[in-house]
Structures are given as C-alpha cells and as structure tokens.
C-alpha cells in the first residue's frame, strides 16, 4: 500500500511570534522552523502502519519554498521513503493546498492520505477535509486511533470530538487527519539522518502542477491581539476568596 503524508514547514510552536510593524506578516528573523507538529504525528502514524502491515511506501509532500527541503529531510530521516516538494514562494490558502494535493494524489494514487489536523501557523483546520471532498473520498479528522481492516479496504478511526470519542468506519482511500494523542512521534536516528540524504526529494514548481492558484482568502492585515492587563498578586488563599466573592463577584 502507499501512504501520502503532508509535512508543512511552520515556525517552532515554542517560538514567540511577533507581527511586523507594517502588519504584512510575522517577524521571521531568528525564528526556528519545524515540521508542523500535527504533520509529524501523521508521519509517525504512516510509519507505524508501514511497520505493522509491511510493504507500504510512505511518500511525503510539502508545499513551500526551497527551505521546506529541511522539513522533508526530517520526515525522510524518521523513515519515510521519498518526498515531493511543490515549490511556492507565496503562501497558499487551504483551498489551493487542497487543489495541489488532489493533483499529487492523482499522480501518486495512494491508498491513504495522512495529514495533521491543522497547521499551527494558519490554524485553519480545513485542507484535509477540502481534499477529501475534492476527491469524493471519506475522511476522518481528529484521529486518535486508526485501525485498518485486514483487506485494507476500510479503516475504523477513533475521533476526538466534543464530549467524547467517536468511532467511524471510512472506506479507503480516505483522508485521515491526526490529533495530538494519535501517537508520539519518534526522533530521527543518526543512521536515519544519513540515509535520508540519499532518498529521493523531487521538486515541482507550483506553476507546473496545473491547478487554479487564485486565492480564495485574502489576508488584509495582521495585528497582535489586544493585551490583557496583569492584575494584582494576593497574599493568601483567604484574601483570594474574599476578592473573588466581594470584588469580582464570581463566587
């Protein structure tokens, strides 16, 4: 079986994000970039499926500048087999991402597409669902457990939904998006990093993909969020309760 997995390049989740004074973007100087943490979980899941079921090929795909090679190499070092980088110097919105990925799916013919539930920069949580609809496939978002059937024609996926856990059965091929507790991604081993250098990383200029690149969303301006003022420090639990009762009137 073949599994296609996305690997978006995003700022480190622990980095402090600041808006540029002109509001056109974020400050990128000295910001470390990583594989989107949810994509990393998706890659790990693909590798586990490969190890369990044997014979699977794990293909990574990313859309971004040449620098996104770094994130694809990370995924290859974890154990993915090869990678595709759709070269784009401009940001693309989730609808355009879905169109590009649809083309990749048509070329690669995977049995399963694994993605992060959202990228931690844009935070839309939409590209996977849009891809599934474009392909006429089923989807399982917010996955916390994935069980493939023996004939690999379907999967039962546990989803983290409001108020509990939901199990759904989805026919393959399908798009599954990873939530936090699906697994704990492995670190790349040193031999893995060495091997990754020799693995195939194919670059495709975005213009050659052959999809409509016109954006569906326009970002006019970025601003820092309104700041909340720090309040007062209290000296004791008794004082705290008094204030919550008499001043804030919340208990």
């Amino acid at each position: 079986m073949k599994i296609l997995v996305t690997a978006k390049r995003v700022p480190d989740p622990n980095a402090t994000i600041k808006v540029r004074p002109d509001g056109t973007g974020i400050v990128t100087d000295n910001v470390k970039y990583v594989v989107n943490p949810f994509c990393e979980i998706a890659i790990e899941e693909a590798l586990r499926i490969k190890e369990k079921h044997g014979g699977a090929e794990v293909v990574l795909v990313s859309i971004g500048g040449k620098v996104a090679q770094e994130q694809l190499r990370t995924g290859l070092a974890m154990g993915a087999d090869r990678a595709i980088l759709v070269l784009s110097e401009q940001e693309v919105d989730p609808a355009v991402v879905a169109r590009i990925l649809k083309k990749t799916v048509e070329t690669e013919q995977p049995d399963l597409v694994l993605m992060g539930k959202q990228a931690i920069d844009d935070d839309s949580n939409a590209a996977g669902q849009m891809l599934a609809e474009l392909l006429g496939w089923g989807q399982a978002t917010f996955a916390s457990a994935v069980k493939l059937s023996d004939d690999k024609k379907s999967a039962v996926v546990t989803r983290e939904v409001d108020g509990g856990l939901e199990d759904i059965e989805v026919q393959l091929p399908a798009v599954i998006t990873a939530d936090l507790r699906l697994n704990e991604p492995r670190y790349a081993s040193l031999p893995g990093i060495m091997k990754a250098r020799k693995k195939e990383l194919k670059e495709i200029p975005i213009a050659e993909v052959g999809v409509d690149l016109s954006p569906t969303i326009k970002i006019h301006k970025l601003e820092p969020p309104p700041k909340r003022q720090a309040g007062k420090k209290v000296g004791s639990v008794q004082e705290l309760v008094q204030l919550l009762h008499a001043e804030a009137k919340v208990i």
């Binding site: 931690i120 969303i217 326009k218 006019h220 301006k221 969020p225």
Partner: peptide, 20 residues
C-alpha cells in the same frame, strides 16, 4: 465585509476576506 480570525495560536489576529 472582512472578518477577524486568530492565527499562530492566537498570537496574531488577521483581518481577512473571502474572495469568492
């Protein structure tokens, strides 16, 4: 007709419009 939405874990508020 534009909307406000948080990005980057709420560190950024974006003013956006839907171009469709």
């Amino acid at each position: 007709g534009t909307f406000e939405r948080p990005m980057y874990a709420g560190n950024v508020i974006a003013k956006i419009s839907i171009e469709r």
